[in-house]
Amino acid sequence: MDFLLNSLSKAFHLIIALDPELLGIVMLSFKVSGLAIIISAAAGLFITLALDLRDFTGKKVIVTMINTFMGLPPVVAGLTLYLILSRSGPLGFLNLLYTPSAMVIVQAILATPIIAGLSYAAVVSADPSLRFTAYTLGATPFQATVKIMKNVRYSVLASVLAGLGRILAEVGAVLIVGGNIAGYTRVMTTAIALEADKGDFELAVALGIILLLIAFALNGLLFYFQRKGK
C-alpha cells in the first residue's frame, strides 16, 4: 500500500513539476498520433466519399475488408510494416525503421479503417431521401455525397475520435517499428511498458495518469458528438 501511494505521489510530483523527460515523451506521442490522425482522417473520409458516390463491382468486398481491418491487431500491423521497412524488405532503402515516421505510418494504417468504417456506416444509415432531396435542389452526385456527410458530421467526428483513442493507447505496433529509443521514438505507451519492466514506476504511473485523462477527455467528446448526432 505504501509502495503504491509512494509511486502515485512521486508520479503527481513529476506531472506538476513538468518533468522534461515526461514532457518530451508526451509531446512525441501527440506529434506522432496527431500526424497519424490527420493522415488517416483524410484517407478515411476520402474512402467514405468514394464508397458512397456510386455503386461499383467489388464494393461489398471492400466494405467487408475495411470492417475486418477495423479490428486489425496492432502487433500484426507493426510486424507487417517491420518486414516491409526492414533492411532486406521491399522498402528497406527508405531507412524508416525505428523512426517516428514509421510510427506515424503504422498508426495511420491502424486508424484509417476505423474512420472509414464508422463514417461510412453513418453515411449509409442516413435518411435515403437526403440524396434525392439534394438532387432535386441541383446537386451533382459528388455534391450530394458531401451533403450527406455533412448531415452526419457528428458521427464522422466521432469516428475520428475513436481512431485517435485507439492509436494513442496502442503499444504493440509502435514498439515494433519505433524501437522505443529514448528521446527519439519513446512514446507514452512504450515508455510505460519499459519503465514498468525496469521496476521504475514513477514515470510509468505519471504517464498512465496522463493517458487515462486523455481517454476520459476523448470519451467525453465522443459522447457529446454522439448525442448531438441523434
Binding site: 437526403l130 434525392f132 432531396t133 432535386t136 441541383g138 455533412k150
Partner: peptide, 13 residues
C-alpha cells in the same frame, strides 16, 4: 427544373 418531393428530407442545419 425543381421538384419538391413528398415529405422532402430536411438538412441537419
Amino acid at each position: 427544373v425543381v421538384l419538391v418531393p413528398t415529405r422532402a428530407a430536411l438538412f441537419n442545419e
